[in-house]
């Protein structure tokens, strides 16, 4: 229990030290706001920031869902045809290693709708861990079990459904946990590049806007919300992972 409390205690101490240092050295809030000023900004700007948070979360989660659908589907296709895997996998790698900040401007030029462009950017970064982990998982099935399936004349579909997909589940879930964080990062980075404003703006634009207006506490408040969203996604996917893998008797932390 004390071990679980350790990060909380440390966090509180750091926040207290931070606030105290600012007061002692009289640092103005437009250089570095303290936790109290940030909390005040969070409360005062809550309607605006909350709308932006929902916008960013919607894009990240939708991108994650599409990444799961596309990643698993493509992984299953790869598992059916080694030739297809050889042909397509290098391009999936290229998609992965090219920095999203470098591709985002192009996508924003090609796609008229900003939310759709953001969605595509977030999808690109979230897609690869799902694909590569699921491919690895589908190929990780126990070779003896595969022989057993062959011996009993299993069809391709039976082997996929009863052996390879269940074998891939732990790998897929580990990939999903990574992809969840990446989808959020992708959505935020793309919005920074887009710099789009208006009613449908996400948290990244609020950070840019607050920076231009020198409302530094609001900037930090938006940043804190992005972190909180990332932690929430990570924790939620971790919970899904533990529940789904209870039968395996291993919790992969």
């Amino acid at each position: 229990m004390t071990e679980r409390l350790a990060p909380v205690v440390l966090g509180i101490l750091v926040l207290l030290g931070w606030e105290a240092a600012l007061r002692v050295f009289a640092v103005p809030p437009w250089i570095l706001p303290g936790p109290v000023a940030i909390a005040e900004a969070l409360v005062a700007d809550w309607p605006l920031l909350f709308r932006s948070l929902l916008m960013t979360l919607r894009i990240a989660l939708l991108a994650l869902a599409l990444a799961v659908a596309a990643g698993v589907l493509l992984a299953v296709l790869f598992a059916q045809s080694r030739w297809l895997e050889r042909a397509l996998f290098p391009y999936a790698v290229i998609l992965q290693v090219t920095p999203i900040v470098a591709i985002a401007p192009l996508i924003l030029i090609w796609v008229d709708s900003v939310p759709v462009a953001l969605l595509i950017c977030a999808w690109i970064v979230a897609f690869f861990p799902i694909l590569s982990n699921t491919v690895l998982g589908l190929n990780s099935a126990d070779p003896n079990l595969r022989d057993l399936f062959r011996l009993h004349g299993a069809t391709r579909w039976q082997t996929l459904r009863l052996l390879r997909l269940p074998s891939a589940l732990p790998f897929f879930l580990a990939g999903l946990r990574v992809a969840g964080g990446l989808a959020l990062i992708g959505a935020v980075v793309a919005e920074f590049v887009a710099g789009a404003g208006g009613a449908g703006s996400g948290l990244a634009f609020r950070i840019l806007e607050a920076g231009y207006q020198l409302r530094i506490p609001r900037m930090f408040a938006a940043l804190a919300l992005i972190s909180a969203a990332g932690i929430a996604i990570f924790a939620a996917l971790g919970w899904v992972q533990r529940r789904a893998l209870r039968r395996w008797g291993t919790s992969e932390e």
Partner: peptide
């Protein structure tokens, strides 16, 4: 066929 390991599906 019985393998050297039980070769059961863990799930």
């Amino acid at each position: 066929f019985v393998f050297q390991d039980p070769t059961l599906m863990p799930w």
